[in-house]
Nucleic acid binder design. Structure first.
Ligand SMILES: NC(=O)c1ccc[n+]([C@@H]2O[C@H](COP(=O)([O-])OP(=O)(O)OC[C@H]3O[C@@H](n4cnc5c(N)ncnc54)[C@H](O)[C@@H]3O)[C@@H](O)[C@H]2O)c1
Ligand SMILES: NC(=O)c1ccc[n+]([C@@H]2O[C@H](COP(=O)([O-])OP(=O)(O)OC[C@H]3O[C@@H](n4cnc5c(N)ncnc54)[C@H](O)[C@@H]3O)[C@@H](O)[C@H]2O)c1
Lengths: 227, 227
DNA sequence: AGGAGTTTGTGAACGAGAGAACAAACTGAG
DNA sequence: CTCAGTTTGTTCTCTCGTTCACAAACTCCT
């Protein structure tokens, strides 16, 4: 049981750490662009907006890539993190729902530079099918399975209205796409083993609103008490 | 010291709970649209995609709005959560950077229906200033302070390139905007008391990529071992 | 009224993550 | 070589969040 290959580093990176690795990667790329070759955990932590102890602990899950008394080699660490995340080569991605948001996503050059390649844009509306967005033409949604198989797509983005999102997710799962980024404001139910992340802008605004209200209520209260 | 008004319920809602309240609100609105008047914690939890114990604990921070043996009144709970978040009336919002993403955001009707009103669209590029997006015309970025003061804007959205984001954030803070939603892939540094939330799509994709890689590595390993 | 059946609200156990603190490992000067 | 100074990797503690489990509170049926 549990036979392991020799190269097994028995690592099991905490989810909170995984979520920060891309931030470190971005910070390292910025440092590299400024021709900085070495940095301390303190410097990198500042650039990433985190505590240096947290940064060091996060990096320690990947291995021991720093040098005590010196710091980290920017280029080396950048590569190690990219390798750990898996963005040393491009991942093919499909975007479904080429409306307002889908257009913005398709036109976004930042994906390409960060390890993702949009291989297809799909929409159910035939009126969209003539269009070419950022060099990729919009195809009928029915071609999902075919395109996913052809390009080995593992990641799908949902930018359809909320009502369509569950159907789209189901089709993606059928097509072998086990990682989904969902922009529609709805809860997706998917089989075990399928990974869903959601981005909900209204929720973010509502969280901000909550804190604004709390702050203003607190200051109003203080004013009242001092009067 | 610590004089309090009579109505002080001494509540101090955990951040993790605050982040879920909008999800519950959305689920309740969906239930109400389906003419469902009452629901149990189990039903609401399923609709929101969380554990029912967690849901009940979350709601208990707001007060005791359910009835044992019965469940929650959908409309009543919906109002209580909306009031707690502060979305019983509209919050004025400005969006800065009306490019690909800014256009999508400006055109998004979901903000309005969820308690936010886009009062201004700002861009530094004079070529953008003729345009009208979703009934709001694009104004020069310099008018930020004036517009913020006029409408009492508390929330700002940054959709500019990363390089401009820090400057925009600084100007927002100066203009009295203490809550910022940042789409630019950069770390913002702001004074204490200013609340920043970020949305970074590339990071979300990278997190998905990490898990895909982990899964495929694991199955490759299993196959190798069984061979 | 009483008892069976539901469902909430919460105390308590458990687990994950954050941060402080420090030994170990390195550099460079003398 | 030795010693002072620097910075990592890791241990320990504390805080925050999740989940379990159950008494309290309600409904409905007899
Ligand atoms: N626009 C934004 O800034 C914004 C912000 C937050 C959330 N969202 C969410 O993102 C989603 C998309 O928003 P949008 O503004 O782009 O909407 P949109 O209506 O402009 O675009 C939706 C697109 O999806 C297509 N579509 C509908 N059903 C489909 C299906 N079954 N299969 C494939 N394609 C289908 C439509 O043809 C349309 O082109 C919505 O769920 C919205 O709530 C958008
Ligand atoms: N488009 C997307 O789907 C997407 C996805 C993820 C992240 N982002 C991020 O969102 C931001 C905007 O992306 P985009 O694709 O809309 O870019 P864009 O280049 O299309 O638009 C940027 C807009 O900001 C304006 N601008 C530049 N400097 C400004 C300043 N100092 N003050 C005010 N306005 C200024 C520009 O004139 C332009 O209109 C970028 O940081 C990008 O990395 C975009």
């Amino acid at each position: 049981m549990t036979a392991r290959t020799s190269n097994d580093t028995a690592r099991d990176i905490p989810e909170a750490t995984v979520a920060r690795l891309p931030i470190y990667l971005r910070a390292l790329i910025t440092l590299a662009e400024d021709s900085i070759e070495t940095c301390s955990s303190e410097e990198l932590a500042t650039a990433a907006g985190v505590n240096s102890a947290k940064l060091r602990k996060d990096l320690s899950y990947l291995g021991s890539y720093g040098t005590r008394g010196v710091g980290y080699d920017v280029e080396y660490l950048r590569y190690q993190i990219a390798r750990e995340i898996g963005v040393t080569q491009d991942w093919p991605v499909v975007i479904v729902g080429i409306g307002n948001l889908g257009h913005a996503l398709a036109n976004y050059s930042g994906f390409r530079s960060r390890g993702f390649r949009v291989v297809a844009l799909l929409d159910a509306d035939p009126d969209r099918h003539d269009e070419v967005v950022a060099g990729v033409d919009v195809r009928p949604f029915d071609e999902l399975e075919e395109i996913a198989a052809e390009h080995g797509v593992a990641i799908g983005v949902i930018a359809t209205p909320a009502l369509a999102a569950q159907d789209v997710a189901d089709r993606m799962v059928t097509a072998g796409i086990a990682s989904i980024l969902n922009f529609a404001p709805t809860v997706l139910s998917v089989p075990d083993g399928v990974d869903v992340r959601k981005v909900d802008l209204s929720i973010e605004l509502q969280i901000l609103a909550f804190h604004v209200q709390r702050k203003t209520a607190a200051s109003a209260l203080a004013q009242e008490n001092s009067a």
